[in-house]
């Protein structure tokens, strides 16, 4: 041992844990809580600002009929977004929800109109179609080891193709008013049933995500899948289940859109998945997984509807609406990445 051994100064204060006095109980400062909910709080503030802005700009914005219309137009995207929130929290993605929804609508039409099955059976069949697609997505991701992007991209194309083939590229109409009432009836006067279904879906999803084992493992897998697996959790099983749950919501969205339009439109659906994913992201769910909330997703979906509705009322060309939504997504993801950089 020769030459210079640099003197070791008492730089042990470098250790971050010594900054906190040892033995002190850690309370979560309110700032920390706010920061962890930053994205969601920001989204909510944005929604309020938008509503105030459009209300001032146009007298026809904040009316019962317009608000009801906004909610109705949020219903389908909202239900899809609620389902895909689960998948995104695991760090995955589901691109098959848009065309999958169309296939579910078509299958509902096949069951009810073509085969003449009772309404209830047709609705359950439509939802089951979604569940089956989700199940296949989950199996492909876990057992074939496909990246979620690829597995669900393939499912997106398959669902689109099947919807066209099964329907013969023609809309399937529903004759019964009772079916249309699923979306357009008003159990609560002035509020379309589709909105109630959205809220019911959101409440169920909220409970599942925050109070059940499925929700806990959704977050755990998204936070650190390997650690979850090593803790003895069967992550494959839960991943499959999570994609199946997303599929069930896709099925519900399929029934609702069919009821709302009074027909299953086989060429509809493309682009819905991206709008739903956008809603989830605007609502503060991290694409990297581990973080997210149903409330945030709901707010995200509402922001998109309010924005589109408001721009239309202000007579801004429809062509510009996508530009604005795109910018909102950029801002949302940027604030999210800012927060993450601070965490890192």
């Amino acid at each position: 041992m020769t030459t210079s051994t640099p003197p070791t100064p008492t730089a042990s204060a470098k250790n971050p844990e010594q900054i906190n006095p040892p033995g002190g109980t850690e309370r979560r400062p309110i700032g920390q809580v706010l920061r962890s909910q930053l994205q969601q709080s920001l989204a909510f503030a944005t929604l309020v600002v938008l509503i105030i802005f459009f209300s001032i700009s146009s007298s026809s914005f904040f009316t019962v009929s317009n608000i009801s219309g906004i909610l109705l137009s949020t219903a389908v995207i909202g239900i899809l977004a609620v389902g895909t929130t689960f998948v995104i929290i695991t760090g995955g993605i589901d691109l098959s929800i848009g065309t999958g929804m169309t296939l579910c609508a078509v299958m509902t039409g096949v069951f009810i109109t073509d085969m003449g099955l009772p309404l209830v059976v047709g609705v359950i069949g439509g939802i089951a179609t979604g569940a089956l697609m989700g199940l296949i997505n989950g199996l492909n991701i876990t057992f074939l080891g496909l990246p979620p992007f690829i597995a669900t991209l393939a499912m997106m194309l398959i669902a689109q193709g099947l919807a066209l083939v099964i329907s013969g590229v023609a809309p399937i109409y529903f004759a019964e008013q009772a079916f249309k009432d699923i979306a357009l009836g008003t159990l609560i006067p002035g509020l379309p049933n589709a909105v109630l279904i959205l809220f019911a879906c959101a409440i169920v999803a909220y409970v599942v995500l925050s109070k059940t084992i499925l929700g806990r493992y959704t977050f755990a897998i998204g936070s650190n899948e390997e650690a979850t697996r090593l803790s003895g959790v069967n992550t494959r099983k839960w991943t499959i289940l999570i994609y199946t749950v997303a599929g069930i919501f896709t099925g519900i969205a399929g029934v609702v859109i069919a009821a709302r339009l009074g027909s299953a439109q086989p060429q509809l659906g493309t682009g819905y998945e991206l709008q739903a994913i956008a809603a989830v992201i605007i609502g503060g769910t991290s694409l990297l997984g581990g973080r997210g909330s149903i409330l945030g997703t709901l707010i995200g979906a509402l922001i998109m509807s309010v924005l589109i509705n408001g721009l239309r009322i202000l007579s801004i060309q429809t062509e510009w609406q996508n530009v604005v939504v795109g910018i909102v997504i950029l801002v949302a993801v940027f604030t999210d990445s800012l927060r993450r950089r601070r965490e890192a």
Binding site: A220, G222, S223, N224, E226, A227, L230, G290
Partner: peptide, 10 residues
């Protein structure tokens, strides 16, 4: 484990 095996978001 030597490498952390925790779920940071939980």
């Amino acid at each position: 484990h030597q490498e952390m095996n925790l779920m940071p978001h939980l």
